[in-house]
Amino acid sequence: MIVTLVLAAEAAFWILLGLGLATRYLLRWRRVSTVLLVGLPVVDLTLFALTVLDLRGGATASWTHALAAGYAGFSIGYGPSLVRWADRHFQYRFAGGPKPVRSPEYGPERTRHEWRVCGRTVVSAAITLGLITALVPLSAGAAHFSDFTGWYARLGIGAGVNVIVAACYSLWPKEAPADAIVEDGRVVGRKVPRQ
């Protein structure tokens, strides 16, 4: 049952996101769009609530129950930035908006970008682990405990790798090519060599 709910929540997330952006830019219904976009975390939190009910009803704990917690953590940690990214691309593609700006590639701007991504990852992992911890007492005995606790190591490694990547950019910032003209960490042109 949980696998079906996870798939339904995934589909609902993308449908709500698409409808939210379509109503904002194509129909110009800003309030309806806001309600639809606010529904994005509600979908994932509803999935988690149904997961709790499933475990309380005597279901055997599995990795899919922990995945439901992961969806809620991802929605809270990455959701706002994902919506902003989709908003910029939808506006450009369908509403005549400006072309989306790429992520910075060089210098301190790239370092700050990496730390922002790292922050989202750490928040997402912390929330997911907190929700998984809340599920552990509901699991049916020690035999299924490892289905949940294995996520501690996986998410810890993922967050740790992200911290290391961001730290590397802090210690060794990526330098732009010598002939590049860089603004805000992005290459905007090339220097013409002197004859």
Rank of each mutant, 00 (worst) to 15 (best):
G58E: 06
G58Y: 00
G58T: 00
G58W: 00
A59C: 04
A59S: 12
A59R: 01
T60M: 13
T60A: 14
T60L: 13
T60P: 07
A61M: 15
A61I: 12
A61P: 13
S62W: 02
S62P: 07
S62M: 04
S62E: 09
S62L: 07
S62Y: 01
S62V: 01
W63N: 05
W63M: 07
H65G: 02
H65S: 03
H65Y: 05
H65E: 01
H65V: 07
H65N: 04
H65T: 05
H65P: 01
A66L: 04
A66E: 02
L67K: 04
L67N: 00
L67M: 13
A68W: 05
A68T: 04
A68V: 03
A68F: 05
A69S: 10
A69C: 01
G70V: 13
G70K: 06
G70F: 11
Y71N: 02
Y71H: 10
Y71K: 02
A72C: 06
F74V: 06
S75D: 01
S75I: 03
S75Q: 03
I76G: 08
I76F: 15
G77R: 07
Y78F: 15
Y78K: 00
Y78I: 00
Y78M: 06
P80K: 12
P80T: 14
P80Y: 15
P80Q: 11
S81Q: 11
S81R: 14
S81G: 15
S81I: 15
L82T: 12
V83N: 09
V83H: 02
V83W: 08
V83D: 03
V83L: 14
V83E: 08
R84G: 06
R84H: 12
R84S: 13
R84M: 11
R84I: 06
W85E: 12
A86H: 07
A86G: 03
A86N: 04
A86L: 09
A86C: 08
D87W: 00
D87N: 09
R88L: 13
R88Y: 01
R88G: 03
R88T: 08
H89W: 04
H89G: 02
F90V: 12
F90M: 08
F90T: 14
F90Q: 08
Q91H: 11
Q91S: 13
Q91C: 12
Q91M: 05
